[in-house]
């Protein structure tokens, strides 16, 4: 039975239900309980934004605070995954990948192939990403394209509470390493979420709005920006189809191409930087596979190729918005 809960509650519920179902699921990360070794309350934080709050109280030492040593604990999560556990490690901000990337891209991602198909590494790394909290250059990036580049990793970017729960449960049950991106501005978003556990398969994009004139391919927080723009454009008689990728690895190229074949126009909306990005990747895909369907050049709407700024006015300028997207749509429609 579905009821409305937040994205944050959906993540927490997915973790709790999977921990209850499978005792090999453990959660580790910085302050995922909070209070370890201190004199006050245990389970004090549940992570800096309280996402895992309450899990320690339910599952005790299967919820493990870690030292602030991402190399060690992300690596330990990877090692434990090869040895019978299903660890869910929290990398507080994806920007911190700089101090543990080896454990993900040289270790977890490679084991299966490099060991001749005999390794299974069912690890999930949950991580916060995205601009919008005035957190500046080292706590605000959208680095999913870097992980998407690496064969052996699966990359998940849910946009709604429903997707967050179903994709996280799928991530935990999946036997390959998964990095699960949670946009920090989506945590308070409410949506219908079934009480029961459920999964959403990877590699199935979600057409969140059907339309006939322009395909907007997007992901994560930007799905909502796309809908805002599409609503505005519909009153001008421009019909937008919105494709939420849901997972960038695997990527549902069929749905992208099918949609562009129907609309003949593509705008890719991505909060990340433009170079070597999901936006450029999707654009290249469509150029190669559906060029004959295109009635206009592809447009990419992305953040600029700069670090995320701190000052509020600059950060607001940095994040792609509905106005920019509308402009791009009008351009491909020849109505600018």
């Amino acid at each position: 039975m579905a009821r409305k809960i937040t994205y944050q509650q959906a993540v927490n519920e997915a973790l709790a239900q999977e921990m209850a179902r499978d005792e090999t699921v453990i959660v580790m990360g910085e302050d995922v309980a909070g209070g370890s070794g201190a004199d006050g309350e245990m389970d004090a934080w549940g992570g800096p934004l309280g996402i895992t709050k309450g899990l320690y109280s339910q599952f005790g030492d299967r919820v493990m605070d870690t030292p602030i040593t991402e190399s060690a604990f992300i690596g330990a999560a990877v090692g434990a995954a090869t040895a019978g556990l299903r660890p869910v490690a929290e990398l507080m901000f994806v920007d911190f990948m700089g101090v543990c990337f080896d454990q993900m891209f040289n270790q977890a991602a490679k084991f299966r192939y490099m060991f001749g198909g005999k390794a299974e590494t069912p690890v999930v790394v949950r991580t916060m990403y995205g601009a919008g909290l005035r957190a500046a250059a080292q706590h605000s990036q959208c680095l999913y394209s870097i992980f998407t580049h690496i064969p052996g990793l699966k990359v998940v970017t849910p946009s709604t509470p429903y997707d967050a729960k179903g994709l996280l449960i799928q991530s935990i049950r999946d036997n390959d390493p998964v990095i699960f991106f949670e946009h920090k501005t989506l945590y308070t978003l409410e949506g219908d979420v079934p009480e029961e556990a459920y999964t959403i398969p990877f590699g199935e994009a979600n057409v969140t709005r059907e339309g006939s004139d322009v395909t907007i391919v997007t992901l994560g927080r930007m799905v909502h920006v796309a809908h805002e723009a599409a609503d505005a454009l519909s009153s001008d008689g421009i019909s937008c189809e919105v494709v939420d990728l849901r997972t960038t690895s695997p990527m549902d190229t069929d749905t992208i191409i099918e949609s562009v074949e129907n609309t003949g126009r593509l705008v890719v909306l991505d909060e990340s930087h433009p170079r070597c990005s999901i936006a450029s990747d999707v654009s290249a895909l469509v150029s190669q596979e559906a060029f004959d369907s295109l009635k206009a050049p592809i447009r990419m709407v992305t953040a600029p190729h700069v670090p995320v700024p701190f000052a509020d006015n600059l950060e607001d300028l940095y994040i792609p918005d509905a106005a920019q997207l509308q402009q791009a749509v009008r351009t491909v429609m020849g109505k600018d």
Binding site: G166, E196, A197, I200, N206, V207, E210
Partner: peptide
Amino acid sequence: TRQLINDLLAFKRIDG
């Protein structure tokens, strides 16, 4: 419709 299929999938994806 796409929504009809999505609703059926959402049902089918529930554990059990």
